[in-house]
Amino acid sequence: MSAELIAEIRAADLFLISTPMYNFTVPAVLKSWIDYMVRPGFTFSLAPGWPGMLENKKARLIVVSRDSYIPGEPSEAADLVTPVLRKVLDFMGIHDVDVVRAGSSLAANLGKVRIDDHLAKYEADVAALAKV
């Protein structure tokens, strides 16, 4: 299974990871994918510095959470998913990573704002991820 997943990512120039934040971390299925992907001799080298072997790839992340984590603000420290994914990708040699943090809205959760209106504010950011 791991070899098949690694072959898929080696064949791709760009890939998308869309994930929720569960209990302050990545869901178990995504953690399992990470464990299948991070393999010596396949995605990183055992040479000094442990260089990644998946260079010239691009990754796009959509991280969905209950709260909003805004880059550069104190709330960003509570986003424990994005740093993990960035570290894993960087370790495998994937440095071109763009992220959309699709946080929730208390107003939407309380029904004061239509969910479609809340989600609309992320449409441009998600569309921009597709531009290579």
Results as ranks from 00 to 15, higher is better:
I17T: 06
A11M: 07
R39M: 11
D13R: 15
V29A: 08
F24T: 13
M37H: 04
G41V: 09
F24E: 12
W33I: 01
A11F: 07
L16S: 07
F15E: 04
G41M: 10
F24L: 14
R10G: 11
R10K: 15
W33S: 01
M37W: 01
M21K: 02
I34R: 07
T25E: 09
I9E: 02
W33F: 11
G41T: 10
F15Y: 09
I34Q: 10
P27G: 10
V29K: 07
L30S: 08
F24D: 15
P20F: 02
R39S: 05
T25K: 02
S32A: 14
M37L: 15
R10A: 11
M37S: 08
P40K: 09
V26I: 15
S18Y: 04
Y36G: 04
P27D: 14
F15K: 02
R10L: 06
V26F: 05
T25M: 07
P40N: 14
I34T: 10
F24W: 14
I34S: 07
Y36V: 03
P27F: 05
R39T: 02
P27H: 11
R10I: 05
N23W: 13
V29M: 05
A11L: 08
R39F: 00
T19I: 06
F15C: 02
W33M: 04
P20Y: 04
G41K: 06
L16G: 09
Y22V: 01
A12N: 12
G41R: 06
F15A: 00
D35A: 05
V29H: 11
G41L: 12
A11N: 14
L16F: 15
A11Y: 07
R10N: 13
G41P: 08
I9H: 01
I34D: 09
S32D: 14
P27Y: 07
W33G: 00
N23H: 12
I17D: 05
D13P: 02
V38M: 12
N23R: 09
A28Q: 11
R39V: 09
P20E: 04
K31E: 04
F24H: 14
A12R: 11
S18W: 00
N23I: 03
F15T: 02
V38Y: 06
D13H: 10
M37C: 12
S32Y: 15
R39W: 04
W33C: 00
A11P: 05
P20N: 06
A12E: 14
